[in-house]
Simulated scan of single mutants.
Amino acid sequence: MRISTAQMFNQSITSVLDRQSSTSKILEQLSSGKRVNTAGDDPVAAIGIDNLNQQNALVDQFMKNIDYANNRLSLTESKLGSAETLTGSVREQMLRAANGGLEDSERQMIAVELRTTLEELVAIANTQDESGNYLFGGFETGKQPFSFDAAGNVVYNGDSGVRDAVVASGVTLGTNIPGDQAFMNAPSGLGDFSVNYLASQVGDFSVNSASITDPAAYVEDSYTFTMVGGDLEVRDSSAALVTTVSPFDPSTPVSVNGIEVSLSDMPENGDSFTINPQSEVSIFDTINQAISLIEDPNKINTPQGRSELAQVLNDIDSGVNQISIARGQSGTHLKSLESHSSAHVEEKLVNSSALSMLEDLDYASAITELEKQQLALNAVSSVFSKVGSTTLFDYI
């Protein structure tokens, strides 16, 4: 069979190029440290590598979300701890102000301290994060959530929104505590009502609790309780008589229209009080009520003042408990974030190990293969050089 010069040349140059390509491929692997740099190097391994890289990218995003949530919740938990301490001190100041041995000037100093406490508490509730977003504004992160109105009452300008972060596949966690949940919507210290006492009160009694015990029988209204002799009359807001407890025994709760009211002691004849529906109280309103009570020197040590003090103390306890619950929620979320973070670190470690098995280069084998390819390339190049320079004229 005849072999043309062109055919010999093409075969030789193809062999040289093939050897050069194989050598370059090994050099690229040695440079990158990876056995698989393109899908063509190992199609099956390339699919596995791509899947593992996608999983790692997803884990990285989860970790970023966790870091963001952790920063916000850590700051939230810290601020709620400060708020809890502040509100707890209000109770101590109230009990100190009720001391009959204090002068009016001393009580006024306590009232000033309480106003400072209230302002500090509002400042905590208006805390901003490192980006300038308000922690306790719900979804309304761009505007101050708490402010004083013209009457000196604290109003909430945010909403009840909870901003969730995806911290794992199918798992979301709230990264904030709305301000109304932490500071505004504490359960009433008495149950479902607040109480108004009269300045004419003589007996040393107070309402321990006033709760709706039978929703089906409940008639929403304000109810006035009046001692008439040894009987307790209950009238609605239209002054219509609802029931009379005869004789009245303070150790037995009064039941009326699905409501159960419990008193601490026996009212005197003519004593009267009114309960109004109110199932939630604001810690800010409670502190304002405490200040008003202390600032009135003619009330704090009267039967009316002592009864109002009991209600204020109940509401303060409820407010402190509400802040404590919110703080506990943020702490629970922080613990959950820590757990998910540990799981992601382990997952990425497993993925990285699998990636190493699929794509990492065995340097010893690669260097051996490089030497073989270089030897083969030299041989092919030498043959090509000799064949290319050979001519029949050399033998004529």
Score class of each variant (00 low, 15 high):
Met1Thr: 11
Arg2Val: 05
Ser4Glu: 03
Ala6Phe: 11
Asn10Ser: 10
Asn10Ile: 01
Gln11Ala: 08
Arg19Glu: 00
Thr23Phe: 08
Leu27Lys: 13
Asn37Thr: 09
Gly48Trp: 05
Gln55Gly: 09
Val59Glu: 09
Phe62His: 13
Ile66Asp: 03
Asp67Met: 01
Leu75Arg: 05
Glu77Pro: 07
Lys79Ile: 15
Gly81Glu: 06
Gly81Lys: 06
Gly81Ala: 10
Thr85Met: 11
Leu86Thr: 10
Ser89Leu: 05
Val90His: 06
Glu92Tyr: 12
Met94Thr: 05
Met94Trp: 04
Asn99Trp: 04
Gly100Tyr: 04
Glu106Ala: 14
Ile110Leu: 11
Val112Cys: 00
Glu113Met: 06
Arg115Tyr: 04
Glu120Leu: 10
Leu121Val: 07
Ala125Phe: 03
Thr127Cys: 02
Thr127Pro: 06
Glu130Arg: 06
Ser131Phe: 14
Asn133Pro: 04
Leu135Gly: 04
Phe136Val: 05
Gly138Leu: 05
Gly142Glu: 15
Lys143Gln: 15
Phe146His: 03
Ala150Thr: 15
Ala151Pro: 02
Asn153Ser: 14
Tyr156Glu: 06
Tyr156Lys: 07
Ser160Ala: 15
Gly161Val: 08
Val166Lys: 11
Val166Asn: 08
Val167Gly: 03
Ala168Ser: 14
Ala168His: 09
Ser169Met: 12
Gly170Thr: 11
Gly174Ala: 11
Thr175Ala: 12
Asn176Lys: 07
Asn176His: 12
Phe183Lys: 04
Ser188Met: 00
Gly189Arg: 03
Gly191Ile: 02
Gly191Leu: 02
Phe193Asn: 03
Tyr197Gly: 00
Leu198Thr: 15
Val202Cys: 00
Val202Ser: 11
Val202Arg: 10
Glu220His: 09
Phe225Glu: 03
Phe225Ser: 03
Val228Trp: 08
Asp231Ser: 15
Leu232Arg: 01
Ser237Leu: 04
Val242Asn: 02
Thr243Glu: 10
Thr252Ser: 06
Val256Ala: 00
Ile259Pro: 01
Glu268Cys: 00
Phe273Thr: 02
Ile275Lys: 01
Asn276Ser: 15
Ser279Asn: 11
Val281Ser: 02
Ile283Tyr: 00
Ala290Trp: 03
Glu295Ile: 02
Ile300Arg: 00
Thr302Trp: 12
Leu309Met: 13
Asn314Ala: 13
Ile323Pro: 04
Ser324Tyr: 13
Arg327Asn: 15
Gly328Val: 08
Gln329Leu: 12
Gln329Asn: 15
Gly331Pro: 09
Gly331Tyr: 08
Thr332Arg: 04
Lys335Val: 03
Leu337Cys: 05
Ala343Trp: 04
Ala343Met: 10
Val345Phe: 08
Val345Ala: 09
Val350Phe: 14
Asn351Thr: 00
Asn351His: 07
Ala364Gln: 14
Ser365Pro: 01
Leu370Met: 12
Leu375Trp: 06
Ala376Lys: 07
Leu377Ile: 07
Asn378Trp: 07
Ala379Val: 14
Val383Arg: 08
Phe384Leu: 00
Lys386Thr: 07
Thr391Val: 12
Leu392Asn: 07
Phe393Cys: 00
